[in-house]
């Protein structure tokens, strides 16, 4: 736990499950947030990972669950790395390229830490749930207490482990809180099958992401959604 900076200690002490996983960077498998996502995916299902980076999750899903995985990634370096591993990944953009896919083509559409960077999050979410029977979506929670405190006490846009960039450099153009996201799900008539409050490293909190406490205490959130 020594690697966790002070900004996260409160959350780590208050709510996280004791760190069973190795810290990021250790060779003990993939990041904990990706492990949590993988745990929600049924074996041998069809998965579209939107913003798949170098294909770490897809590779893990193939190795451990024989998942028929596809990926979309914006950065050419990420695509190149993924395809060179034998993964089915295309260079593309969540905002423009999801519309090509037919309805129900996948069992799961995954969007990890990307929703807040899209131009049209509502459209993207609708597309995810059109393409996939279920969607797995994670995002930084702007309602996290430190973000609120930062804004109230310093009068400046929060910069934290989950939101590392200054306002003028950030790709995050549509930040939201857990409560905001739930409102959108309700409006779209989407069923929330599971919701998790996460700390800055994606470790699952004991807090239920249903409660308002999570909106205050969770740095990130992860939702498993289903079309009604």
């Amino acid at each position: 736990m020594t690697h966790i900076d002070t900004a996260n200690q409160t959350v780590a002490q208050a709510g996280t499950v004791a760190a069973a996983g190795a810290p990021p960077g250790a060779n003990a498998g993939i990041r904990v947030d990706l492990q949590l996502i993988a745990s929600l995916v049924a074996p041998e299902s069809r998965v579209l990972d939107v913003g798949c980076e170098d294909g770490t999750l897809l590779s893990y899903l193939w190795q451990t669950k024989r998942v028929d995985g596809r990926g979309i990634e914006l950065s050419m370096d990420g695509v190149q790395a993924a395809v060179a591993q034998g993964l089915s990944v295309i260079q593309g953009d969540a905002d423009t390229d999801l519309k090509d896919y037919p309805a129900g083509a996948f069992d799961y559409a995954i969007l990890s830490q990307t929703l807040q960077a899209t131009r049209n999050p509502r459209g993207v979410l609708e597309d995810l749930l059109r393409i996939g029977h279920r969607a797995i979506v994670s995002f930084p929670n702007f309602g996290y207490w430190r973000n609120r405190l930062h804004l109230v006490t310093q009068g400046r846009m929060p910069v934290s482990r989950c939101l590392p960039s200054q306002w003028w450099a950030t790709p995050n153009i549509h930040l939201c809180t857990i409560r905001d996201f739930r409102d959108l799900c309700r409006e779209l008539g989407v069923t929330v099958e599971a919701a998790y409050a996460l700390d800055s490293q994606g470790r699952k909190s004991r807090l239920s992401a249903d409660g308002s406490l999570a909106n205050l205490m969770a740095e990130q959130a992860l939702f498993l959604l289903r079309r009604k």
Partner: peptide, 13 residues
């Protein structure tokens, strides 16, 4: 993509 085919795509610089 429109027929949900298994496809990889790389534009080499």
């Amino acid at each position: 993509n429109a027929v949900a085919a298994n496809v990889s795509f790389v534009e080499v610089q």
